[in-house]
């Protein structure tokens, strides 16, 4: 095989050498192009926002609010419950959701999975991660569903919001960490903010899709009886779109979970931080323990939301 690679390399070398004048001539055509420092522009915009008292104060309010929800409401509450009670409650809930199908895999998984997390002493880290994910999901729902409804009702809004959602999802999540730190310092809150930006789009998109997929005849039926547009929304469109919207929420939860390791880089505590430490110390045992705990949490959240969704569909 090696002789083929050698032959190819010498061919490419010869080609590069012989076409160099042509390449240089074309390159000269762009010589006038200055460097466009849009990175600097964004940086000065962020600096300006940070230094403008009014805007900075609003960001502080937002930080306090998110900290209140994630730490004081979710985390403090979860920490009040002894692990064994927590495990039993979740097992009972999953049993309730799946009772009609008589499939007992989920309660078994919940019970033993959570027991495993407790046994490797990652219970508190799991609670931190759970609080982060639930806060990010809650904010995504509160912002995302109304936005999705608005998109579903207006083509203009859809045209504007779709590229923004594309941007939010394709921009590497690491990049969000920088402005998140700039505005919200370090810890849980910037982690939540970065997770929301990355995880919200599916909820918005699928709400929009769900609203748009309602059959025309049902919309016409609703209109023909003299519904106001709010009645139409709450009595026809949202009930019809419910499963689609829930699929979006499920995706949002999964994406928020996938952000926890990245968020650990800016000091967000939890399972993600343990994994991040394990990687930086090259500690394979610790990495797998924390990683598997994260997987267990992910599977439980995924199956629970899906079971909840199916349970609701009579």
């Amino acid at each position: 095989m090696n002789w083929i690679a050698d032959l190819w390399r010498s061919f490419i070398g010869w080609l590069a050498e012989s076409t160099e004048p042509v390449y240089n001539w074309f390159d000269g055509l762009l010589a006038f192009l200055p460097r466009i420092p849009f990175g600097d522009w964004i940086e000065s915009l962020v600096d300006w926002m940070k230094n403008t008292e009014f805007i900075a104060n609003r960001f502080n309010d937002l930080r306090d609010f998110i900290a209140f929800i994630s730490t004081d409401i979710f985390l403090s509450f979860f920490q009040l419950i002894p692990p064994i009670i927590f495990i039993l409650i979740l097992t009972a809930v999953s049993f309730w959701f799946t009772r009609k199908k008589r499939a007992y895999g989920l309660p078994v998984l919940v019970f033993f999975g959570l027991l495993l997390i407790e046994s490797v002493n990652y219970w508190n880290d799991m609670l931190l991660t759970l609080s982060l994910v639930l806060t990010a999901t809650l904010i995504s729902i509160v912002v995302g569903i109304p936005l999705g409804i608005w998109m579903g009702k207006s083509n203009r809004v859809q045209q504007i919001v779709t590229p923004i959602l594309d941007f939010m999802q394709t921009m590497p999540a690491f990049v969000y960490l920088l402005p998140a730190v700039a505005f919200f310092s370090i810890g849980m809150v910037p982690g939540v903010v970065a997770s929301v930006i990355f995880a919200m789009p599916p909820t918005v998109r699928l709400t929009n899709l769900g609203i748009r997929q309602v059959p025309t005849e049902m919309i016409e039926a609703s209109d023909s009886f003299g519904s106001t547009s709010l009645q139409k929304l709450f009595k026809v469109q949202l009930p019809m779109a419910k499963t689609t919207i829930m699929a979006g929420v499920n995706q949002t939860i999964m994406l928020a979970l996938s952000m926890v390791v990245i968020a650990a880089m800016i000091g967000t505590d939890g399972l993600g931080r343990q994994i991040y430490f394990a990687v930086s110390r090259n500690d394979l045992a610790m990495g797998f323990e924390a990683g598997i705990c994260l997987v267990i949490l992910a599977i439980i959240l995924d199956r629970l939301t899906q079971a909840f969704n199916l349970n609701k569909m009579k």
Partner: peptide, 22 residues
């Protein structure tokens, strides 16, 4: 006014029924 007419004076039956499945 239109809503009032639709509520009180005329209603419609659809080809594919247009019933609400939920």
């Amino acid at each position: 006014q239109l809503r009032e007419v639709r509520r009180k004076k005329m209603s419609m039956v659809f080809q594919k029924f247009g019933l609400f499945p939920f």
